[in-house]
Every structure is written in structure tokens, then in C-alpha cells.
Amino acid sequence: MHNRLFRARGLVFGRYILTIALMLLLNGCGTEKKWQLHDITGHLPDLRFSMRSDAGQPVTDQTYRGYLVMLFFGYTSCQAECPSTLFRLAKIVQGLGDNAKRARILFVTLDPGRDTPQVLHRYVTAFAAGHAIGLTGSESEIAALAKRYRAAFRPGKSETNDITHSAAVYVFDPQGHARLLVTPDDAIAKAANELRHLLETSR
């Protein structure tokens, strides 16, 4: 009796193992491409915001539907990271070739007090005219967007010139899904290649 019970339990246990193994196997088959950049597909929410552009117009995520969006947070008085990231992004956009017209860089200011739309406009067009857009809004709107993408931001700290900000660039596909992270360590050519592939596969 005990033996039979034991065997029955063993059988059930075996079936569990088999199911898990099968699931793992199917999962393994499902992945098409191994991205060279950090793949964040499914881990962060879709692009959603409602802010003001550097032209002073209200814009939402819908404005950029159909574009590959590179979103990042910074401020114009930033000494090192922000200019270098914008410079790198401008190079990456150049590297996209014909696809460049389908890509947009969204620079969200973390210092809305000082970064007026005019200041933002002058700043982003100096790097990538036609491709980069500065975004601003109320402090709570900016804080909500930063929180949505887990970027560090504490409102009310802009006077101290000690604004913490994220180094990552969040890449969204033309459908608005969060797909990749571009980090400061990624080579420009590699990132451009990956983004071109993303654009071509999500046509």
C-alpha cells in the first residue's frame, strides 16, 4: 500500500518536472533575437505621458506613435552626462541612415524651473536638430514619468544643483512598447545597429 502510494506520488512529481522542462524548452525556442543591448521587453510599462514640448505645445505619447523613441532624463545645466548622452544619441541617429527620420530623441528635463521651453529648444537643437525634442511639464508630471520608468528624481531639489538622474536611455518601439536600454558603455555603432534592427522588424 505504502509502496503504491509512494509510486503514485513519484509519478505526479515526475509529471511536474516534465511540464516545467517542456515549458523551459518552449520558452527557449520562442526567443528570436538575442539583443546586444539590455532587453527590457515586458519589464517596463508602455510609453505614456502628457507634457509640453520645447515649442511650447502640449504633446503626448500619441504624438510619437510610429517613431522609435529614445527617452531620457536630464537638465541643461548638467556638466557631463547629459551633453555626452545627447551627443551619443545624435551619433546613433546618424548611424540609422534612412531610418533616422523614424526616430525621435525625447529629452525630459528634471529642472523645469530653469529649463524653459526656449532654453530646452536651444539646447537639444544644438545636438540633433530635427530629431531631438525637449519635454517639460509641472514637477509632479515629470516626477510621475520618472517614477514610471524607475528613474531617480526627487522634486524640489533643483536649487541645490545636486539633481540625481539616470544614465539610461529608454528605447521604445514605434508601437510604444519599452524594448531596450542604451547605456553609456554601449558603443555607438553597436547601438545604431540594434536600433536599426528594431525599426526594421517592427515595421
Binding site: 539590455h38 532624463f73 520608468y149 524607475r150 528613474a151 531617480a152 528624481f153 526627487r154 545636486d162 540625481t164 538622474h165 539616470s166 544614465a167 539610461a168 536600454l181 547605456t183
Partner: peptide, 12 residues
Amino acid sequence: YPIYTLCGRAFT
């Protein structure tokens, strides 16, 4: 753990 640099550190 580069994620803390990527998402930004709380203490600069």
C-alpha cells in the same frame, strides 16, 4: 549592479 547607475542613484 549597473542598474543603480542606469536608473540613477539617490545620493549623488
